[in-house]
Computed example of a mutant assay.
Amino acid sequence: MDRAFHARWFDGRSSAGQLVHVALSGSPRGPVLRLLQLGTGTHLLELGPREVRWPESWSTQARPKPLAVDLGRHGSLQVDDGSLWHRAQAAAGHRPTLAPRMQTRWTVLAGACVMALAALAAFYHWGTPWAATRLTAHVPLAWEIGLSERALRDLDGRHLRPSRLPVPRQQALRAQFDQLASRARAGHWPDRGYAPVFQLAFRAGLGANALALPGGQIVMTDGLVETAAARGLSDDALLGVLAHEIGHVAHRHTTRMLVEPGVLNIGLGLALGDVPTLVSSGASLLTGLAYQRGHEAQADCFALALMREAGIATAPTADLLTAIDSHGSEGPAWSALLSSHPQTPERAAALRAGKAEGCS
């Protein structure tokens, strides 16, 4: 059924407007606009749904307000009472877009907010790690090795000192590490196209600690070796730590830590527009803590699988981790950031049982 009213048509060829009869009718594809000459009813113009820029109703109030309707190359309509147009438009089957529905109906606004928050949460939980992993896969190994060399030089200049471990002891541990790294590459390696150059370095400083740098460089401190010896633990304890650090390298966690905040901030920018610095910084901080916990869990699972394949007992590593925690070490045994790890007692118990949370 047509809804008709009067309007002034400016056809774009003349500055004078022509008073016309406007009729909107429904069709399977949407509203159809017809302009008829007053008095005679002569057909002047007919436009389909895609030929009219249908104005939206941004208010629930029905006060008469002038309205301009863009007809593209056919000029424009000047409607004195915009409410007449909107009623006729709705009756002809026009479906308002989400933006005006959010403004005029609080239930739609609430639903859109819930969906937006759910989408952001999903992007944070799944989308960002997925995108960061894909982007990290394209980072050249040479860049990682260069970054690792610069980072180690900086650590040597600020926090670390040359190792005091006897050379034969270093050589024995390095030989076991090389065997473990070779077994890791031959086993459940996540990306066969990624071939880091594994190297084990020994340093003094930073307490009982071990850390993985990108590209395959792993650093073990004298304090970690000495703590294991003081507790009478076998080298299995140290190899468990090294297996975990190999897992960090295998999954390129250090590089992902550089990529993930940027991916999240891009997502926030696309979703929210111009993100304030405070929000961006807070998001980066939360990203670092939450995603590092995921990295730690992933490295735990990698280490447990590798230790099973190599026949390495997991209980000594649990005992070493407990010993470090009881001494209030400045750094953790399995990474550089203790705050990103599960609580030590729960983690040690899982190690002794030969399992970790989230492992398949």
Rank of each mutant, 00 (worst) to 15 (best):
D325T: 05
L180C: 04
R50G: 11
S14P: 00
A175P: 01
L173H: 02
G72K: 03
G187S: 11
R252T: 10
Q37N: 06
E357S: 15
L36Y: 03
D178S: 09
V249A: 12
G240C: 12
A212W: 00
Q343K: 13
A356S: 15
E346A: 15
A271I: 09
M220N: 09
A204V: 03
M1S: 10
R105Y: 14
G193V: 02
S182T: 05
A290S: 13
P316S: 03
V139R: 01
S148L: 11
P64V: 08
R256P: 03
R161V: 02
R293M: 04
G288H: 05
A229T: 08
H125V: 12
L47W: 08
V114S: 10
Q18H: 06
P49L: 11
G262W: 11
L285W: 05
G215W: 02
V22S: 08
F177H: 04
L36N: 01
A271K: 13
V52M: 09
L306S: 08
L165A: 06
A313E: 10
S182N: 07
H86M: 14
H94C: 05
A137Y: 01
R101L: 15
A315T: 12
V22G: 05
P214Q: 04
L278T: 13
Y194G: 03
A142E: 00
R308Q: 12
I145C: 00
P55I: 12
P332L: 07
G157K: 07
S360I: 14
R50T: 15
A290P: 01
Q217M: 06
T277R: 06
P261D: 12
C359P: 06
S15P: 12
S281G: 05
R150W: 02
Q292T: 06
E296L: 07
A229F: 04
P166I: 07
A16D: 13
